[in-house]
Design a protein around this nucleic acid. Structure first.
Lengths: 226, 226
DNA sequence: GAGGCAAGATTGTTGAACAATCTTGGCATT
DNA sequence: AATGCCAAGATTGTTCAACAATCTTGCCTC
C-alpha cells in the first residue's frame, strides 16, 4: 500500500449520509495538501480498503473528482492524480486573466469586503516576514479568491476554486519551489488600495499585467519557455 | 413507466466503453430537449430498466449530472430534473454579465470568428422571418457561446455551456413561451459589427446593458418582479 | 379533520461475481 | 543481446443481489 494512504483509515469511516461525497472530500484534501502527488495512481482496491468503503462507492467519488479535473480517468488503466502541464498552466491563466479583472471592474464591493482583503494582505506580510512560503501562497490564493467573489456569483467562485486547486497541483508537481509570491505581496496591497479608491479600471488593467507576469514566470520555471 | 422514457431503450444499449458517461449523455439530451421536464423525478428502477443498465451504472451517471447542476439530488428522496427559480436566473445572469463582456473586451478574435458570428446572425434573421422561436433561441445561444469562446478558454466555454443548459431549463419550465429573442436579433448583429470595428469597450458596455435588460425581462415573466 | 402508526416502496451501500483490458514475466527467434 | 510474442496474473468495468436506512402512503384512532 502507498505510504501516503497511511492514516486515511483513521479519519473515521463512520456511516455518513452520502458516503461518496465524503470520500471525494477526503481525497480532495489529501491531494490539495500534496500527499497523493500529481501522477499518483489511485488503486481501487487499496483505497477502498484504506477508507473502509466499497469499490462502488469509491468509484462514485472518482466520478465527482474527475468532473472537477482533480483526477484523470484513463479507461481500463485507472484513476490518477491530475498532473498539469504547460498547456494547463496557460488555461489556468486564461481563466484568471478574464474573471479576476472582470470581477474587479464590474463587481459590487459589499461592506466589509475591503477590510477582509486588508486582513489577508496583513497575513501575507506576516508570512513574508517569517519566510513562510506556504503562508504567502495561502494568503495569495485567498486574496485572489476574494477578488473573484466580488462578482457575487457562486458559479464563478466555484470555477476559481477549481482553478486554484489546479494551481496547487502545479506547485506540488514542481521539483524546486522558489519564492513566487514574495514580490506579489505589495502588488496585492496596491491592488486593494486601488479598489478602495474606486480606481476600478486601473486596478483591472494592473491585475491583467500582474497575471501575465505570473504566468510567464511560472512557465519559465517549469521549462516551457527559455 | 413515464411516457417520456418511451423510446430510450431503442436508443441502443450496446456495450460501450464508459457506459456511465453514455447514460449521462442520453439523459442530458432528453432533458435539454424538454422531455423529462424540470422537476421530473428520475426513478432509479424505471430508468435503469429503460436504459438497460444496472442501478449502479445509472447512479454514476447521476453523479455526473448532479455535478453539472442538470439534476438535483436529494438524499433518500431521489434525483430530480433541476427546476431553476428566480435566484437561479439571477445567478445565470451574474455569470453571463461577467464572462461575456470580459471575453468581448479582452479576448482574441481569431481569423474566421467574425464570419462564423455573421453566419449565426443570418440564421437568426432567417428564423425570425419564418417565426421560428426555437430557431431564434438556438441561434441566440450559439452567438453568445461564440462570444465567450473569444476567451480561448475551454473552462469558460464549459461554464457557458452549463449556464446555457440551465437557461434552456428555465425556458422549458415556463408555462407560456413569449418571443424573448425577436428584438435581440439586430442587437446581436450590431454587437458583432462593433467587434469587427474594434470597438471593444463599446461592445462590452452595450452587452452588459443587453444582459441587464434580458434578465429583467425574464424575471418579470416568471413573476419574480412586478 | 388531525395526528400517529404500520406496511410498502425507494434510495444508500455493500459484497461478490464475471468480462474486458492491461501489465508482467518468460520464452523463442533473429 | 535485442526483439517480438504469448500466457498468466492483476486491475478495471459492469452487473446482480441483498440488506439497511429513509421516505411515502394508506389506514386507524381520537
Amino acid at each position: 500500500m502507498n505510504a501516503a494512504l497511511q492514516g486515511i483509515a483513521d479519519a473515521g469511516h463512520a456511516t455518513h449520509a452520502h458516503t461518496g461525497a465524503w470520500v471525494a472530500a477526503q481525497l480532495r484534501q489529501r491531494i490539495s495538501q500534496g500527499l497523493l502527488p500529481p501522477g499518483a495512481k489511485l488503486s481501487e482496491q487499496a483505497l477502498s480498503e484504506a477508507l473502509g468503503v466499497s469499490r462502488n462507492t469509491l468509484r462514485e467519488a472518482f466520478t465527482v473528482l474527475a468532473g472537477e479535473s482533480v483526477v484523470q480517468r484513463i479507461p481500463n488503466r485507472g484513476v490518477f492524480v491530475a498532473a498539469p502541464g504547460a498547456e494547463d498552466v496557460r488555461e489556468i491563466y486564461r481563466v484568471r486573466r478574464l474573471i479576476e479583472p472582470a470581477a474587479v471592474l464590474w463587481g459590487d464591493v459589499p461592506a466589509g469586503a475591503l477590510d477582509t482583503m486588508d486582513a489577508i494582505v496583513d497575513k501575507a506580510r506576516a508570512a513574508l516576514a517569517e519566510g513562510s512560503v506556504a503562508g504567502m501562497a495561502d494568503a495569495n490564493q485567498e486574496l485572489h479568491k476574494a477578488l473573484v467573489s466580488l462578482s457575487g456569483s457562486a458559479s464563478l467562485d466555484a470555477l476559481m476554486e477549481k482553478v486554484l486547486a489546479e494551481m496547487r497541483l502545479v506547485f506540488h508537481a514542481m521539483a524546486t519551489t522558489p519564492d513566487f509570491h514574495g514580490h506579489y505581496v505589495e502588488r496585492n496591497a496596491a491592488l486593494v488600495a486601488q479598489i478602495r479608491n474606486g480606481q476600478r479600471e486601473e486596478a483591472a488593467a494592473e491585475l491583467r499585467r500582474y497575471l501575465d507576469g505570473a504566468e510567464h514566470e511560472l512557465l519559465v520555471h517549469i521549462g516551457a519557455i527559455p
